[in-house]
């Protein structure tokens, strides 16, 4: 297996005194399902956004598909972004447009300016969108406006928009943080399937440690902008969890043994 993504010595400074990331190192293999966990403000969102340069890291090196993302010019950056899908906590759909239009937005990166402005999509693109929506169980909602959907359905549209990009990797920033347990499970199962069946690499920021341990091939624990755990969910210990969340977390969370059993 080769590394699809390598993050080397990445730091990010906001203003003069907020160090959101300091010397972050890890790598992710093709097709791997990786969860990033850590307390609020640890730098998880910042880390994810540095990868597709929605935020520019201050220093370090990010290698995606053998390209150094940090050095890319605008045009090449757009090209890399078409290969990386992004999923958001608040779905970030265009609420007034239909489900299929929102899905097709995933293709805008590959279009000429004119076709993008006019929203010209080919028959194949539309069929592909319908297929993806079918797989995600949204057949009945294809022509509904996005703001008429439930949270779980909106998130599936978000996934559809990312999948139509035909991406190598998905970046998911707390995709289930606004969802009830049932919808959350549906979303996590879809993401897991995307990784297993389509071989797409998935990077997820999560707040639910149990979910992270259950679904992931690899866990990256972040605290205060530093990676404090990087390994398999099977090997994680109570001490590791304490290291990630700080010692007060001890009582808040479950015992790790119970989770591994489930």
């Amino acid at each position: 297996m080769t590394a699809l993504l390598e993050v080397n010595h990445v730091s990010k400074q906001f203003g003069s005194d907020t160090k959101a990331l300091s010397d972050v190192n890890f790598s992710v293999n093709e097709g791997e399902f990786v969860s990033i966990i850590g307390p609020s403000g640890a730098g998880k969102s910042t880390l994810l956004r540095c990868i597709n340069r929605m935020i520019d890291a201050t220093s370090g090196e990010i290698i995606f598909d053998n390209m150094n993302v940090m050095n890319l010019k605008k045009k090449d950056l757009k090209k890399v972004r078409t290969k990386i899908g992004m999923i958001f906590q608040h779905y970030n759909l265009v609420n007034r447009l239909s489900v299929i239009e929102n899905t097709l937005h995933g293709n805008l990166g590959k279009k000429s300016t004119l076709a993008g402005v006019l929203g010209l999509y080919s028959q194949e693109e539309k069929e592909q969108a319908v297929n993806i929506l079918h797989v995600l169980g949204l057949d009945e909602h294809i022509y509904k406006r996005a703001d008429q959907l439930s949270g779980g359905q909106k998130q599936r549209v978000g996934i559809a928009r990312a999948l139509i990009q035909d991406p190598r990797m998905l970046l998911c920033d707390e995709p289930i943080a606004s969802l009830d347990p049932n919808s959350a499970k549906i979303i996590m199962d879809h993401l897991r399937n995307i990784s297993t069946k389509l071989g797409i690499t998935v990077l997820v920021n999560l707040h639910q440690v149990d979910v992270a341990l259950k679904y992931s091939d690899k866990i990256i624990g972040v605290n205060h902008g530093q990676v404090v755990y990087n390994g398999s969910p099977k090997d994680i210990t109570k001490e590791d969890i304490q290291l990630i969340y700080g010692s007060e977390a001890e009582d808040l969370i479950f015992d790790v043994g119970g989770i591994h059993a489930s």
Binding site: M86, N92, V117, A162
Partner: peptide, 21 residues
Amino acid sequence: GSSVEALQATGAGYFSIIFQS
């Protein structure tokens, strides 16, 4: 704001984002 962020992340160009989002 939020949908603009999403379309930027797909690699969409400036004018596409204005007209589609």
